[in-house]
Amino acid sequence: MAKFVTIDGHKLPKQGAFILAPNHYSEIDPVIMGRFMWGLGRVPRFLAKGSLFRIPVVGRILTASGQIPVEREGRGRSDAPLKAAQQLVDRRLAVIIYPEGTLTRDPDLWPMRGKSGAVRMALESGVDIIPAAHWGTQKIMARYSKRISFFPRKRIECKIGDPVDLSDLRGRPIDQATLAEGTARVMTAIAQLLGDLRGETPPAERWDPSKNNQKETGRFE
C-alpha cells in the first residue's frame, strides 16, 4: 500500500467553503488528493459534468456524495462557473479543482500553464483558493499509464500552502486580464510547494502546450 505524509496540513480549514488547487500529473490524482483531504478532516468534493448526474445509479451516487454538477449549455461563456460557485458558498463545501484542467504536459512533471476556472470561482464566490502539491503518486500510476502498482510500498507526500492572495483582484471586473493574473499566482504557488517536496527549484515559467505543439484538453475552464 502507500504511506501518506501531509506537510502543513493545519493550513486546511476545518470548516467553511474553500477551493483546493493541486498539481495534476496522474489519472489517479483525484483519489490521492481525496485521501489527503479526508485525512485532514474534510469531505472532498469535485466538479462533475451535469450530464453525469442524469445517468441512472451514477447520478444518485454523485448527488449522495455531494459532488457539484456543472452544466455546459449554449455557446460561449455559460453561467456554469457562477452557479457552481454559489453552491460552494451555500453548502460551505471544500472543492478540489485542478487549475491545469488536465494532466501536465511539462516533461519533468512540473505544473504547466493554468486555466481560469479555479480563480473565476474563487473571485465569484469570495472564498479562498488554497494551493497544494503532492509528489510520489507517479510511482503508483505514471502519467498516461493505465497500470497501478501499490507494491512495494510507496511514499506520497502532500504539502498545503497558504491561501493565494487575490485581495487586490476582488472588486475588479472578472475579465481575461484579471483571471490571467490570478491564475499565474496560483500556479506559481503550486510550483513552489512542489519544489519544496522535490527539493528542487521549479522553472521560472510554466510549460505552455500551445507553444510546444501539444494538444490540450481541458475539463473545466
Results as ranks from 00 to 15, higher is better:
residue 89 V to D: 01
residue 90 D to H: 11
residue 90 D to C: 12
residue 91 R to N: 13
residue 92 R to G: 06
residue 93 L to K: 04
residue 93 L to S: 06
residue 94 A to M: 07
residue 95 V to L: 09
residue 95 V to C: 06
residue 96 I to K: 00
residue 97 I to G: 05
residue 97 I to M: 05
residue 98 Y to Q: 05
residue 99 P to E: 11
residue 100 E to A: 06
residue 101 G to P: 07
residue 101 G to E: 01
residue 101 G to V: 02
residue 102 T to G: 08
residue 103 L to I: 10
residue 104 T to V: 12
residue 105 R to I: 11
residue 105 R to F: 13
residue 106 D to E: 13
residue 106 D to Y: 10
residue 107 P to Y: 04
residue 108 D to F: 06
residue 108 D to L: 11
residue 108 D to W: 02
residue 108 D to N: 15
residue 109 L to S: 09
residue 110 W to Q: 07
residue 110 W to D: 10
residue 110 W to L: 06
residue 110 W to R: 06
residue 111 P to Q: 01
residue 111 P to I: 00
residue 112 M to G: 05
residue 112 M to S: 12
residue 114 G to D: 03
residue 115 K to R: 04
residue 115 K to H: 10
residue 115 K to A: 03
residue 116 S to V: 14
residue 116 S to Q: 13
residue 117 G to L: 08
residue 117 G to F: 06
residue 118 A to C: 08
residue 119 V to C: 09
residue 119 V to T: 12
residue 119 V to P: 00
residue 120 R to C: 03
residue 121 M to P: 00
residue 121 M to C: 05
residue 122 A to V: 14
residue 122 A to H: 04
residue 122 A to Y: 04
residue 122 A to W: 05
residue 122 A to C: 10
residue 123 L to D: 02
residue 123 L to H: 07
residue 123 L to A: 12
residue 124 E to A: 06
residue 124 E to M: 08
residue 124 E to L: 14
residue 124 E to D: 10
residue 125 S to G: 09
residue 126 G to A: 12
residue 127 V to F: 06
residue 127 V to H: 01
residue 127 V to W: 01
residue 128 D to L: 07
residue 128 D to K: 11
residue 129 I to K: 00
residue 129 I to L: 03
residue 129 I to T: 09
residue 129 I to D: 07
residue 130 I to Q: 00
residue 130 I to S: 03
residue 130 I to M: 02
residue 131 P to V: 05
residue 131 P to I: 03
residue 131 P to H: 06
residue 132 A to R: 00
residue 132 A to T: 00
residue 133 A to V: 11
residue 133 A to M: 04
residue 134 H to M: 12
residue 134 H to Y: 04
residue 135 W to Q: 08
residue 135 W to A: 06
residue 136 G to C: 07
residue 136 G to I: 02
residue 136 G to V: 03
residue 136 G to Q: 06
residue 137 T to N: 13
residue 137 T to F: 05
residue 137 T to K: 07
residue 138 Q to I: 08
residue 138 Q to V: 11
residue 138 Q to K: 15
residue 138 Q to M: 12
residue 139 K to D: 15
residue 140 I to W: 00
residue 140 I to Q: 02
residue 140 I to K: 03
residue 141 M to K: 04
residue 142 A to Y: 02
residue 143 R to S: 12
residue 143 R to H: 13
residue 143 R to T: 09
residue 143 R to Y: 05
residue 144 Y to G: 08
residue 145 S to F: 11
residue 145 S to H: 14
residue 145 S to A: 13
residue 146 K to C: 08
residue 146 K to D: 15
residue 147 R to F: 11
residue 148 I to R: 10
residue 149 S to D: 15
residue 151 F to Q: 12
residue 151 F to S: 14
residue 153 R to I: 15
residue 153 R to M: 14
residue 154 K to L: 05
residue 154 K to R: 12
residue 156 I to W: 02
residue 156 I to T: 07
residue 156 I to Y: 01
residue 156 I to M: 08
residue 158 C to Y: 00
residue 158 C to R: 00
residue 159 K to W: 01
residue 160 I to A: 04
residue 160 I to M: 03
residue 161 G to T: 11
residue 162 D to V: 13
residue 162 D to W: 07
residue 162 D to P: 10
residue 165 D to Q: 05
residue 165 D to F: 05
residue 166 L to W: 09
residue 169 L to H: 07
residue 169 L to A: 10
residue 169 L to G: 13
residue 169 L to W: 03
residue 169 L to C: 08
residue 169 L to P: 04
residue 169 L to Q: 04
residue 170 R to S: 14
residue 170 R to H: 07
residue 171 G to V: 01
residue 171 G to A: 13
residue 172 R to E: 13
